[in-house]
Design a protein around this nucleic acid. Structure first.
Lengths: 225, 225
DNA sequence: GGATAATTTGACCGATTGGTAAACATTACA
DNA sequence: TGTAATGTTTACCAATCGGTCAAATTATCC
């Protein structure tokens, strides 16, 4: 029952992390995950190599593998760290609030995330696009539950006549897709808009358009029908 | 000026293709591109291997490389073949038509493509997501020109009060993103909708919602302003 | 300061990568 | 039917892949 000849990296027994966690560990793991975000978000899991991440992180490959035993472990740690934050805007969606204001601020928040955290957006986009082999459970579990909950809120709003009757799931999908588009398909957006309109102002233009679209499209039918 | 010792694959001198094009060539290139679409759309360029494509195509790797000299050449041929078809719906967008009907049918066509050609959608999504290293020219050239043209049509409609005043580029982006979402993020859509609603009927639900959203959101302001 | 644990590295491993060389098999065509 | 062009395969290449190992270095703590 000993481990002589092969010391376990400190990060492996996760439970022990809070007990013995070096300053160096925190710094290096941070460095690595930052580099991993760069690489994974740009090339997907299969298209990324440990050597690339090591180079971006500025350390040797075996050193990376001292902190994360496998490429998969690095990817998993990255997903875990980013996923919670990523769902924050949807979680903030408030049943008690004013529907129009809630939808407006949800769009705005998602658009801000697309602008400020495009790598995180692309990390998930790459993953989902390639069949979500590593996050299937998260999609079918926590994500579905959260969406189910918020969909119920939207359905209640529609029932109360506060917004038009519509499918709440597809409404959420459409907000996701339109906002994340500006992160995931950034190069295409820039190419089409051309140099003159691909500055940071495009996010304001997008926000204006999307609010117009969704607020207009969801305004309740005056006949109540 | 001879090539002894290394016969040139027939496909290399593209100009000569029309002159001497074997039945076998057509069949095999078809087979290869079909397999390449499978693999590239699922893993992106970097994440795909020639061996994978060879296996799917049911032929040996050197045999693939007889028809396409490099992995890049295969990818390029695939992009070239698919791109034209992919832009067909936007090209069909008619300035003379009724704005509401044109937008409605554009959404429907794009949604049909997401349903019927999800691999093609993912091929481009992978490519753009990873920085569009192989199709930058196509984006900045033909794509931008086509979008510019159609944006002008939409702008004219808005000016004439036929639809609400809005940014035509972001309108096009939002139609792209919402429709392609059902191909590119299919696994996520299925996971969130659950088994009961992830049948083919989801495309009808999506169409209904998106038409509602866009038609409602673009209906001209009755005050005209 | 010395022992001990934590960290880092260069050298290396077998498997896989994109791609080649050349022998071999098949087809088209006179 | 012969033969030249076309098509296919086996064996192979150097480079890169994810990952290991043991030795060397550095930080920590008494």
């Amino acid at each position: 029952m000993n481990f002589k000849g092969k010391r376990q990296p400190v990060t492996i027994p996760r439970a022990a992390k809070t007990l013995r966690r070096t300053r160096i560990q925190e710094e290096k793991e941070e460095q690595i995950l930052e580099a991993a975000l760069d690489v994974f978000s740009a090339s997907g899991f299969r298209g990324s190599t440990i050597d690339q991440i090591a180079e971006v992180a500025g350390m040797s490959k075996p050193n990376l593998l001292y902190y994360f035993r496998t490429k998969e472990a690095m990817h998993r740690a990255l997903i875990d760290r980013v996923l919670y934050t990523w769902l924050e805007p949807l979680r903030a969606f408030d049943a008690e609030g004013n529907p129009e204001a809630e939808i407006r601020s949800y769009i705005r928040r998602k658009l801000e995330m697309a602008r400020d955290f495009p790598r995180e957006s692309r990390l998930f986009a790459n993953e989902v696009l390639q069949g979500a082999p590593h996050i299937e459970d998260e999609l079918k579990g926590p994500l579905k539950e959260l969406v189910d909950e918020k969909a119920e809120v939207i359905r209640a709003w529609a029932k109360a006549g506060k917004i038009v009757k519509c499918d709440p799931y597809h409404l959420i999908f459409s907000i996701w897709s339109t906002t994340q588009h500006y992160a995931d398909f950034d190069v295409q957006v820039r190419a089409v808009l051309g140099q003159e309109h691909s500055g940071e102002g495009r996010f304001e233009d997008a926000a204006r358009f999307l609010e117009q679209l969704f607020i207009g499209g969801l305004r309740p039918d005056p006949l109540g029908g």
